[in-house]
Design a protein around this nucleic acid. Structure first.
Lengths: 221, 221
DNA sequence: GTCTATAGATTGATAGAC
DNA sequence: GTCTATCAATCTATAGAC
């Protein structure tokens, strides 16, 4: 009975799926639970027991998949980068894509919160994610500068070089996220980001004020 | 003997200084230690015992001045706002003042780190500093917008209204701090901020490119 | 007002049965 | 691969002597 219950709880083994797949699914469930909790409470206040409970196993079962809390954190960060692949991995960035990404983030406060809390937490001494974020920010700035250079050449319409615009773009995105998380009613993150693109001169300045009565484009539903 | 030792350890009571002053000095020492440690390790990883040790008293002595860890945190935040009064309290903001503030911050990574870690930490659930930062960001945006309006009227040279520029200014400052803390060699925070002021059209655009060979002004020594 | 002592809870991690 | 049981450390906070 208990064996059947456990088997059922894990989901019936589908044909053609080997143990590798099951293992990966289990890890994915754990990582999802960990990301949710880190977003809710921060990394340090998130206990392994709480993650395990939400993932539907015991703390010790969790430690079988991620031997330490630090390795679990790194797993979460890598998963977020995978999820975020459109922004971090491919070199095919354009400013329009960035505006879409901000739009996308504005609908997912949990993930944004996990990222905001973790990235700021990582500046503390000997934080396990410090190297990760340092490398990530550098890579993002470089990829962004390269993409801007490919699109606009040596200078953006606003006058900045791509290399000087890149850290500002990243800063605006992160800074707006913080204000928006604290006060979503007051801060219109996508609109503010479009304002910044307009300043840079890379934004679709025409689209910034689409005019009233247009029946297409911005509809949500 | 022990009474004399204790009296000596606290510093001899100077004439004209009452108990109130001693108490305030004691509190200031504790707050300084707490801010240092929060900057180094974050709020949650900072134990009361560690703060007490650095402040030169026991954990229980500390709890006499700040009955809970949360009240200590609030004390630190209020002290930072007092220290930061030039930026947060007075309504006499101008963009030149902001550039100076960024410059000033660039020389004080400890305080910037405490602020960055705490503000991001505060977005987590039921964080004791959440209300503080929500109110603070709102007040800063409003004061900034009012100052910009007084200086430039309904629209900045770059085209934005003061109310739309304000959250971007705050975002750039916070976002640059994060990147700079992680990688001070790579990120020139004051220069990037001046780039942003140039975009806004409020910056001293002439100073932005002083030209090579100038013997004055930007020297670091 | 500061101390010693300790309560009371939670944490990350290990050992070993099944 | 997941479980039960448990450890050792650490934390915030309280009680009471001096």
């Amino acid at each position: 009975m208990s064996a059947e219950e456990r088997s059922a709880a894990r989901g019936s083994r589908r044909a053609g799926h080997g143990r590798e797949t099951q293992r990966a699914e289990r890890r994915a469930v754990i990582l999802e639970a960990a990301m949710q909790l880190i977003a809710e409470r921060g990394y340090r206040r998130t206990s392994l027991a709480a993650v395990a409970e939400r993932a539907g196993l015991t703390q010790q079962g969790l430690l079988h998949h991620f031997p330490t809390k630090e390795l679990l954190l790194i797993g979460v960060l890598e998963a977020r980068d995978r999820w975020d692949a459109a922004a971090a991995a491919s070199g095919s960035w354009r400013t329009g894509t960035l505006a879409q990404l901000v739009e996308y983030n504005a609908a997912r406060p949990g993930i944004v919160q996990a990222y905001t809390v973790l990235s700021a937490d990582s500046v503390t001494e000997e934080h396990p994610a410090r190297d990760f974020f340092e490398a990530r920010f550098r890579a993002v700035r470089e990829a962004l500068a390269a993409a801007l250079r490919a699109e606009f050449g040596d200078a953006l319409p606003g006058g900045l070089t791509p290399e000087r615009a890149a850290p500002l773009l990243v800063a605006v995105m992160d800074g707006l996220q913080l204000q928006w998380l604290l006060d979503p009613e007051e801060v219109d993150m996508p609109a503010s980001f479009r304002d910044f693109l307009t300043l840079l001169g890379t934004g679709a300045a025409g689209e910034a004020e689409p005019g009233p009565g247009a029946g297409e484009g911005d509809r949500e539903e």
